[in-house]
Amino acid sequence: MMKAVKYKRLRMALAGVLLMFVSFVGLAQPQETLDAYRAYQKQNYQEASNLIDEAISTEAGQKDAMTWHIRGFIYKDIFNQIDDKARDSENREIAVDAFLESMRLDDSGQYADNNLKSLRYLASSFYNDAVLVMRETSKDNIAHSEKFYQRYKGLMEQIDSEFDAKERDITYYKALATSHRKIYERDKTANRKYLNKALANYQYVLELDPDNYGANYNTAINLYNEGAHGIEQIDAEAQIPTIVEIQSESIDLFREALPYMLKAYELDSTRKETLIALRGIYLSLNNNEKANEYRDLLRETQQTNK
């Protein structure tokens, strides 16, 4: 019910803009634009879309900000009402392109507010899809999450000069790394490449923000866990050359993990989990002296927190 009222208001607002335009500027747009608008008001989206498509195929329509503006609304509503916000809806893309074209042609800025509001709304819909797909943690469609996210980011960068892509990237790619890791953990052998993807996500975050505690800590933990998993999987009947080989591969991962965990510790030396992890990494590197150092620091921290 509220949705219906909302759309009615939108259509009324659009009607006001249209009337102003017709009264003061004159009929620069083709007849099909007005007909499309009337069909849209009656929620006859099929007819509205046919008519507005005809309108933009005319020379006048192509250059008319209002025609593109109305096209944007028609296709936005088709995406919302008919497609039920389907992730693969092409009508969402048509709506985006129409609002962008309207903005480009709208020299007087007459439609600027509504164009921007609509584009923000559509950008948010891409972001929502990116997050929802990501949280499904499915091998089949996790790649689509990034595609939706990039669409969101690209659109926001076009319409908002103050959009902070870096901050948003950091949040998004850390979350994406978590999803990749979860897929990997479901089957560590078959899904090994998803661990690499998770590590690549963190690496990208660290390129943007080398002092990001979470990305440093999680990179180290992922590497450590992978090394420990390798050793844990040593078969009971494994012969010495195999043990030596697996150990060496795991030690390489522990070595790789260490600088990230040391960086995390440098960024925040009060965290218990960092001290526990450093002790564990050094133990796995067979460096008892250093492991004991961090064990003592952990005890001190626990005493201080009592």
Partner: peptide, 27 residues
């Protein structure tokens, strides 16, 4: 979903990997 994503902290977030400590030397 969006709220949850923005709720991630900048540290090891709640859904981050858990340190799977093993006595690898003993193994």
């Amino acid at each position: 979903a969006v709220f949850a994503l923005f709720s991630f902290t900048h540290s090891g977030d709640d859904e981050g990997p858990r340190f799977d400590e093993k006595d690898t030397s003993a193994i």
